[in-house]
Amino acid sequence: MSDPNDRAFGRMDGRVALVTGASSGIGEAIVRSFLDAGARVHAVARRGMMVEDSVGLEAIEAGRVVVHALDVGDKEAMLSLGAELERSDPIDTLVCAAGVNVTARRMAELTPESWEQLVDTNLHGVFFSIRATLGQIRERAGDVVVISSVTATWPDHAGGGYGATKSGVLGLARGLSIDEHMNGVRVTSILPGIVNTPILDKRPIPPSDELRAWCLQPEDVATATLVAVTMPARANVAEMTLVATRLQALGKTQLANPELPDALRASAS
């Protein structure tokens, strides 16, 4: 078991993490970042084969990565996984990075089915993940990181359904911290702006490749996550907002596809 008072900044040697949404985007980048930092990672994704393609067979055969092909919105599957880990390989770090959005996202377009899809993954999935592993994390004075969104704090183009779920997980994380900080559990919510991940393809008008190059990249969020979980045990990064420097600012994220500044357009041409 890793001693929370004897952890080196930027290193996760001896630590065991569970990362959801591990097959692509932010979750995939966090898995690779944790591996590079020395952790063993349990990677949860509906498309388990994509995790294997990302991390490589060597890491899996060495036991550095254990792939769990399941849906975070499946309550029984997540609780079963938590019980299995408690018995065989308890974790000290949980990262909830699984998330979805839908293309028809305006309130008049949302259907009961698309609403349930958003809630099942973005909100229920976070709760089930925490509920399944909290005892292990508490015992090890570990970390919980929730990937929320800037849309949790003010409405934007992402849609009311997505915003409601991301606001929900922000509230859940704050409540978890109130309940568990005295036990040494650190809870971090990361609120990214526009990130170049496959979720952008779900937008009614996906951004151009030129624009995506200036967005946050998944590796940026992974770096922020690694910082949060390797801070000295006395310090908790409770919430962190990340935005794309040349495209957004705090409180200025409402445009779905921000215009590139003239200087950036000129340099790209």
Rank of each mutant, 00 (worst) to 15 (best):
S189M: 02
G171T: 10
H181A: 04
V227M: 11
R212H: 01
R203M: 12
V195L: 03
R186C: 13
W214I: 00
V221Y: 05
T197H: 01
E219I: 12
R203Q: 14
L172Y: 08
L176I: 13
E180Y: 11
I178G: 05
V195G: 01
R186A: 13
H181G: 00
S189E: 02
V221S: 06
M182T: 10
Q217C: 06
A224L: 01
D209Y: 06
D220Y: 02
E210F: 05
I178L: 14
N183C: 09
R212E: 00
S208W: 09
L226K: 12
G175Q: 13
S177C: 03
D179M: 09
D209K: 15
V187Y: 00
R203W: 05
V185D: 08
I205E: 14
A213H: 11
I190C: 02
A213D: 12
G193K: 14
P218G: 09
R174D: 13
R186V: 11
A173N: 04
L216V: 07
E210T: 14
I178R: 14
P204K: 12
L176P: 06
I194Y: 03
R186N: 10
V187L: 00
E210W: 07
V195K: 01
T223C: 06
D179E: 15
S189N: 04
A222F: 04
M182P: 00
L172M: 13
P206I: 10
G184Y: 08
P198S: 09
C215G: 00
E210G: 03
R174K: 15
Q217M: 08
G193F: 09
Q217W: 04
T197L: 01
G184H: 11
D209G: 05
M182H: 10
R203T: 01
L191D: 07
G175W: 05
I205H: 14
S189D: 02
G171E: 06
L211I: 13
R186F: 07
D201V: 12
L216S: 01
R203L: 13
A222H: 05
K202H: 13
E219D: 15
T197V: 10
I178W: 05
T225F: 02
V185L: 10
G193Q: 12
D201W: 09
S177Q: 12
M182S: 08
L191K: 02
L216N: 02
L191M: 11
M182N: 08
G193L: 11
L216A: 01
I199S: 12
I190F: 08
D220K: 00
V187C: 01
P204H: 11
S177V: 04
A213P: 00
V221A: 03
D209F: 10
G193T: 15
T197R: 00
D201P: 02
Q217G: 01
L216Y: 07
G171N: 15
D220Q: 05
V187S: 00
G175S: 15
K202Q: 15
S189L: 01
S189C: 06
V227L: 12
L211T: 14
V195Y: 02
G184Q: 09
N183R: 14
P192R: 07
P206C: 07
A224W: 00
R174T: 09
L200D: 09
G175N: 14
N196C: 06
S208K: 12
I190T: 07
R203F: 13
G171R: 11
V185N: 03
E210D: 14
I205R: 14
G193M: 15
L191W: 03
A173I: 10
L226T: 10
H181C: 05
I190E: 06
N196Q: 08
